[in-house]
Design a protein around this nucleic acid. Structure first.
Lengths: 186, 186
DNA sequence: ATCGGATAGTTGCATGTCCTACTGTTTTCC
DNA sequence: GGAAAACAGTAGGACATGCAACTATCCGAT
């Protein structure tokens, strides 16, 4: 993260220009979109982690915590966590290892299936989740640096991208919660 | 990456619901936006890296290559690369180390400033850049998994986010190349 | 019942990113 | 001029992520 030295020109717009100049106009927008995604994620992640740092957790671990926080029982199998967060099983192992070291969660054997390990949210973890969320909400999520209508549009567009990538098979998101973002092309 | 097992419901929409249910409605959209960004970046990166893998480079290294490819002289100072790509100096060192090992670039001393190291694109690197770009363009950038108008909208919205985050000080992107995406909120 | 395939988790390895700290250079300013 | 500040690049350390490989367990088809 950290915007080491502000540039005068948008580097992505610059790259887009280069793409067009080299006869790759058809791919210029796609390139710009992918590159923007990379950078925007970096920015968003940096903001979130800045808030979470004092709590001693990263966004990845925070997500695990919240998943458990929302689950009625307060515990979930590792595999289910990985599926919900859409990350590799090894990432779950890593996150849970660290959360366990910090006494925020605990591993428990599954009562009937000896293959699966349950991750249980401990009181300390539950409290951290609640407190950190409050702060994240006010300092980042409630003020993401975009006008509300663009936030919604962003979510909708990315939902379509995620759906297209096979993240979930449910209904196309565009038609349910929000409307398809209709961009006014001048 | 990898969409390990497709879920029936959109996990982010699910989280958004939970947020609202817990009295955090004001932050729900922001949370969804940030989370979507994380996942979308993962998806985009995975697609790109899948194409680049046979070439033996990652997206980070590819970006360095392209920067040099576009520079007239074919060489740039490390610091300038870091600023353009908006990454930490140590990341540039890392990428250049590997590119140099693969004989794609070469480090040269700066003629007048002995602090700076120039990175020079070698013929092999130039060729790889051209070939890989062709394939990336056709396999990813030209078909990013979104309708063209949404790709443009995405780029515009993210440009605003990046500008807001201080990535560049030039003109607000929304008013120059593309129009402000006007989302129809039904 | 049993064997083969699917599942759950872990470990080892490679990568990228950032941060902090440190060494040289160059520039700035008194 | 000369000291202080800024700048360029690198080394070491902490994390997260993914892949491949491996063990243990469960499940289904024969």
């Amino acid at each position: 993260m950290s915007a080491h030295d502000r540039l005068s020109l948008d580097p992505i717009a610059e790259a887009r220009r280069q793409w067009a100049a080299h006869g790759w106009a058809a791919a210029a927008d796609g390139m710009a979109a992918v590159t923007s995604l990379m950078r925007a994620q970096q920015i968003a992640l940096a903001r979130v982690e800045a808030v979470l740092r004092p709590y001693g957790v990263t966004f990845a671990r925070y997500e695990v915590l919240m998943l458990l926080y929302f689950s009625r029982v307060g515990s979930l199998p590792m595999a289910k966590i990985g599926k919900r967060l859409q990350v590799h099983p090894t990432s779950v192992t890593n996150a849970v290892d660290r959360l366990e070291s910090a006494d925020l969660v605990r591993r428990t054997p599954h009562p009937t299936d000896r293959r699966t390990t349950l991750v249980e949210l401990l009181p300390k973890g539950r409290e951290l989740a609640a407190t950190a969320t409050e702060e994240l909400n006010t300092r980042v999520f409630a003020a993401p640096g975009l006008p509300p209508e663009n936030v919604t549009a962003l979510v909708t567009i990315l939902a379509e991208l995620r759906h297209e990538a096979g993240d979930f098979s449910g209904p196309r998101p565009s038609s349910s919660d929000a409307e398809l973002p209709a961009v006014d092309h001048q």
